[in-house]
Design a protein around this nucleic acid. Sequence first.
DNA 1: TTGACAAGTTAAGCAATCCTAACTATATTA
DNA 2: TAATATAGTTAGGATTGCTTAACTTGTCAA
Lengths: 163, 163
Amino acid sequence: MVQTRSQKLSASLEDYLEAIFNLAGESNVARSKDIAKLLGVAKPSVTGALKLLAKKGLVNYRPYGYVTLTDSGVAEAARVARKHNIIKSFFVNILGVDAKVAQEAACKAEHALGPAIISRLLDFTDFITRTGRNGYDVADEFKQFRKGKRQGGSKHKSKQPGK
Amino acid sequence: MVQTRSQKLSASLEDYLEAIFNLAGESNVARSKDIAKLLGVAKPSVTGALKLLAKKGLVNYRPYGYVTLTDSGVAEAARVARKHNIIKSFFVNILGVDAKVAQEAACKAEHALGPAIISRLLDFTDFITRTGRNGYDVADEFKQFRKGKRQGGSKHKSKQPGK
DNA sequence: TTGACAAGTTAAGCAATCCTAACTATATTA
DNA sequence: TAATATAGTTAGGATTGCTTAACTTGTCAA
């Protein structure tokens, strides 16, 4: 009896689902070994998680077989991955955070931020990106602001060294 | 033997520490009952957490006594609270999120975001706030952008109804 | 075809965090 | 000052998520 949307997933199970989603790619199948490696856990942890996800109707699991996502598993994973990308994009494109740092932070933050925040974060990044193409690039101005700040300057608007 | 900075605190222990910090306020003391209420846990959970925090040298704990933070407890709690406020401020002042939603999201996100992100988030909120006072208010423009979007408009810059 | 190696599973257990029920200490008030 | 209500603790247990060690399965090359 494959129940199709039992409850909210735990952060951990969301991570497994997202990992399968990302590993599967075109081939549509993921291997236990790779999931373990990607998430930095031991193999038996993956087996356990797969059984839970299967019970929730999110993955097709057969012992010793390949792992694939069900339709609702894909939907759920895509939802998580979308959150991840929105957060990461904000970190990288607006805040100017290093891609690797942004990636890791997004992995954690994606479990903490609800729809209200995510929706606004997406719109905001979008908004800043658009206006950037129309002349006033907030992200770039912010970068200059940071740079000035690092050099002990306090004025930001002026380009000559402080004072 | 009060070890003064044993390790990274778990998200849960950070929550307890922050709760004590917020409850203590001027009086400097917090009561177990209030911690439990604030965090939505049962009283024995608080007792357990206090023992752990005491072992780490972060709170002064005596059975049936009042709870106070040690110096390093205050420092650590302030660090967590600062994160919280930076995140919340960004949500409220830049993204325009409802204060209550922002409060709850910040509670979760504060455990997920490291120093690199936090530092930039603080600077960014600061930057936007400053430039807002100098004429171009990004936060306000974004609010208009959202409003326009909600009404199905696609242009944002123009104030007349779409098309 | 078989045997060896890699992949996956099972079993057992540990740590963190929470809970309820029952008990003890403190403080208030009559 | 003694009874009682409130606060706090202890004991015991559930859940989640992870681990290692040992076992099973499957595949590929000799």
